[in-house]
Design a protein around this nucleic acid. Structure first.
Length: 275
DNA sequence: CATATGTCCTGAGAGC
DNA sequence: TGCTCTCAGGACATAT
């Protein structure tokens, strides 16, 4: 479930690899099926080994290693992937090791194997991660732009916030959290929100995402998400609605958190104080 | 075109 | 206890 805050935490955790050179690319022998390495492990090795890492960026929910050649290595954790420096949670699901010239290693670990590592040539980056695929980063767009991108849609606001082509980075957990903070009912169609409500959604989105980054993301009950040093995040201790069905709403003190399903995903909210 | 649904995957937890 | 079943949700493919 890595979303923007978790992926940003991973990115910051490996920032010290900037300036290092890639010495080796290793594919650990994995008992389970190997993850997808696109276009192929051989291509990744051929184009990455010997290259200097010049930047570590984030593209929505992906970590991007920029190489001096202009190529990029993109880590896409999806449900259960992690980008780590050094210590994986277990040996078992270690999928890729990028050995640096100082002996450290950038690792891709993925318990479920739904993740992806892609070597993208400079001229292909736009095709995979350009504006047609990925909207502006959730931390970098104005409330007017947010409204302009979603306000014509008839979809429920919660569902629309997950559309990565509209804005990049918000996932299932933080969509519920930010709508609770904004006091907006997740079932409301986008085209029925007022300007003032879009402002509230935007302000709440920034507040929740920044707070979650400060707490290094949310490590849920399954313990899967870890930062780059294999440590837990702590934002789960600040969740107001996510995975709290049946509990009292701590804001209004009277409503009960409900769980509903929208677009096959859980949504949590307080019907009493989200209108 | 916009929106909705099915699929991949593993491990945790429920229920018998 | 140990089996089977369901569920979790990122992004994408396919369907409506």
């Amino acid at each position: 479930m890595p979303e923007l805050p978790e992926v940003e935490t991973m990115r910051r955790g490996i920032l010290s690899v900037v300036g290092r050179r890639i010495a080796e690319v290793r594919l650990p022998r994995c008992r389970k099926r190997p993850i997808l390495i696109a276009p192929s492990p051989a291509t990744l090795r051929r184009r990455a080994v010997g290259q200097k890492i010049v930047a570590v960026d984030r593209a929505g929910k992906r970590v991007v290693l920029r190489l001096a050649s202009g190529d990029a290595i993109v880590f896409e954790p999806r449900m259960a992937g992690l980008v780590l420096l050094g210590t994986p949670p277990t040996r078992e699901h270690l999928r890729l090791r990028i050995v640096l010239d100082d002996g450290r290693e950038v690792l891709f670990w993925d318990r479920r194997g739904l993740g992806l590592v892609r070597l993208v040539r400079q001229d292909e980056f736009e095709k995979h991660y350009g504006a047609a695929k990925l909207g502006p980063d959730a931390l970098a767009l104005s409330w007017q732009e947010l409204a302009a991108r979603l306000a014509k849609s008839r979809r429920p606001i919660k569902v629309a916030l997950l559309d990565q082509a509209a804005l990049a980075g918000v996932g299932n957990l933080y969509a519920s959290e930010l709508l609770h903070l904004a006091r907006i009912d997740p079932r409301r169609p986008c085209n029925e929100l007022s300007k003032a409500e879009w402002r509230r959604v935007h302000a709440a989105m920034l507040e929740v995402l920044h707070a979650a980054i400060r707490h290094e993301g949310s490590t849920l009950g399954d313990g899967t998400y870890r930062n780059a040093l294999n440590e837990e995040g702590s934002y789960q201790n600040h969740h107001r609605v996510y995975d709290r069905a049946g509990q009292r709403c701590e804001r209004c003190r009277r409503g009960e958190i409900e769980r509903i399903v929208q677009a096959q995903r859980s949504t949590y909210f307080c019907a009493r104080c989200q209108k």
